[in-house]
Design a protein around this nucleic acid. Structure first.
Length: 471
RNA sequence: GCCCCAUUCGUCCAGCGGCCUAGGACGCCGGCCUUUCACGCCGGUAACACGGGUUCGAAUCCCGUAUGGGGUGCCA
């Protein structure tokens, strides 16, 4: 039997990294086994089914490169099947109506001296259906349900600890537990791969599964949770978890997927950064860890940096385009020249960890420095030896050098430093003053090629401005 | 409270009874390269939670304890 897996997110308006990881592991399993991946939107709360909410799931998946073979299906479009299942359970006496509110349930528990929770109060009250009446599943009192989880092993839950849970709400809509059982059965799902936060619901779904007479249940695999640096489950409130936010911050989808695959799983050969195709080949559910994994942005950054370095200059320019030409670029729109970026891309790529950082290194090529970094100025111009003579010499030399030739430019600048070194019998560094004059700062990409691209006039202009300021 | 789950360097992963004086990666620290910053390279730091078993032999199996996490909704 070829595996059929499903990724079944609730439409919350964005895709959580934890969900993306679940999607990825489902996808890896499907692609590794030649199985089928089904996308199913768990919108039992039908108000969520708008195009916007669907896009919020679909777009990030596509960005990551995760595709699916069937769907998206919508639970909200399968209400009839869910209702039929509920009816079947009611008819067979395995479910019953209940009209108690939360407050009444709590009060009854307290009065009876029982722990909080629902204790089958309405089992034999003969409540009939009506507005606001829910349907509860009659959980067995004795025995236990066992979940054989590929990742966690055998998990046994005693029925005594399972209360008669709601399977249909007061407004008639199905709760995801019943929808899950019905949909997984009817869609022929063989493997349920999802987060550990759902482990506790597995026995309930299994109970429904059996009560409905569905036969062999799917195989379960509960993935370890993703946590923040405090060991707590990644949450929308505390942590940055929207996948789209990572895209906007300048992470490459390939890096994101690669990193996500490493959370809770690792290849036996210990090679971490590798193409998705290889991960697909090496992946196995049995090898997935049980312990929670911390989402470590530092490591994500490192992997992203690796992927950025591996990009061809053309690919880098294309990937970084939004940051280079968008509204937020630091330079005037007309100043941007893609050919300059492409020519300097290799130098930029080895210095950035996220796509958006490219502008920091390239800014001076499209805009003269507005002011000089104080520390850098002091170090190169004031404390630096003979900065005035360095600038004079460089300006003179640059006036007649072939500006198409970066090596010639280098020879001029370095030559000035070397000549002064022997003349003054003390080490004179000529690159630092030139860099400060040109870029405004003390650190950056190698100068020569960039200067050639900047052009003689602009270079001389900036050098003279700095020389004038030096006095 | 009750139920469920987990526990190898700070972090992620390898290890599935002897190959472990525990390996890789990130981070951190040091060095090399370098007339900037990086990249790269070299080296270092650092862990089997604890206590009992089982076994000739345990990081690996079993049982407790501790700690951490998840769940406990007419959310999924």
């Amino acid at each position: 039997m070829t595996p059929r897996v499903r990724f079944a997110p609730a439409p919350t308006g964005f895709l959580h990294v934890g969900s993306a990881r679940s999607a990825l592991f489902n996808w890896l399993y499907a692609r590794n086994t030649g199985g089928t991946m089904v996308l199913r939107v768990e919108d039992t709360d039908a108000s969520k089914k708008t195009q916007e909410f669907v896009d919020a799931i679909v777009d990030p998946l596509q960005w990551l490169g995760l595709d699916w073979d069937e769907g998206p299906y919508f639970q909200s479009e399968r209400l009839e099947q869910h209702a039929a299942a509920v009816q079947q359970l009611v008819d067979s006496g395995q479910a019953y109506f209940c009209d108690l509110s939360r407050e009444e349930i709590d009060r009854k528990a307290e009065e009876a001296g029982l722990p909080p929770g629902y204790h089958g109060w309405s089992r034999d009250r003969g409540v009939s259906d009506g507005p606001g009446v829910v349907v509860r599943f009659r959980a067995p009192d004795e025995g236990s349900t066992v979940i054989d989880d590929v990742i966690r092993g055998r998990v046994e839950v005693k029925h005594a600890t399972v209360e008669d849970f709601v399977i249909r709400r007061g407004d008639g809509s199905p709760v995801f537990l019943i929808a899950n059982a019905v949909d997984d059965y009817e869609m022929g799902i063989t493997h349920v791969i999802r987060g550990e936060d759902l482990l506790n619901t597995a026995p309930k779904v299994k109970l429904l599964w059996d009560a409905l007479g569905y036969g062999e249940p799917p195989t379960y695999a509960h993935l370890p949770l993703l946590t923040n640096d405090q060991g707590k489950k990644l949450s929308k409130r505390r942590d940055s978890v929207a996948l789209g936010a990572f895209r906007d911050e300048g992470y490459l989808p390939e890096a994101m997927v690669n990193y996500l695959a490493l959370l809770g799983w690792g290849p036996a050969d210990e090679v971490e950064v590798r193409p998705l195709a290889e991960i697909v080949e090496l992946f196995s559910l049995e090898a997935v860890n049980k312990a929670p994994a911390m989402f470590d942005v530092k490591k994500l950054d490192h992997i992203n940096g690796e992927y950025i370095k591996a990009l061809s200059p053309t690919a880098f320019v294309a990937a970084a385009e939004p940051w280079l030409t968008g509204h937020d670029t630091p330079w005037a729109a007309g100043a941007y020249r893609p050919e300059v970026v492409e020519a300097l891309a290799p130098e930029v790529q080895q210095r950035v960890v996220k796509l958006g950082e490219g502008t920091d290194w390239l800014r001076w090529l499209f805009e003269a420095p507005l002011d000089y970094d104080e520390k850098s100025w002091t170090k190169a111009m004031v404390k630096g030896r003979a900065a005035d003579r360095v600038l004079d010499g460089v300006i003179e030399g640059l006036e007649k050098v072939d500006f198409e030739d970066p090596e010639a430019i280098e020879a001029v600048v370095m030559g000035v430093g070397n000549d002064l070194t022997s003349e003054l019998e003390t080490r004179v560094l000529s690159q630092a003053p030139v860099r400060v004059a040109l870029t405004g700062g003390g650190a950056g990409i190698p100068l020569w090629r960039a200067m050639s691209l900047l052009g003689r006039n602009e270079c001389l202009h900036r050098l003279r401005a700095a020389r004038a300021r030096l006095g």
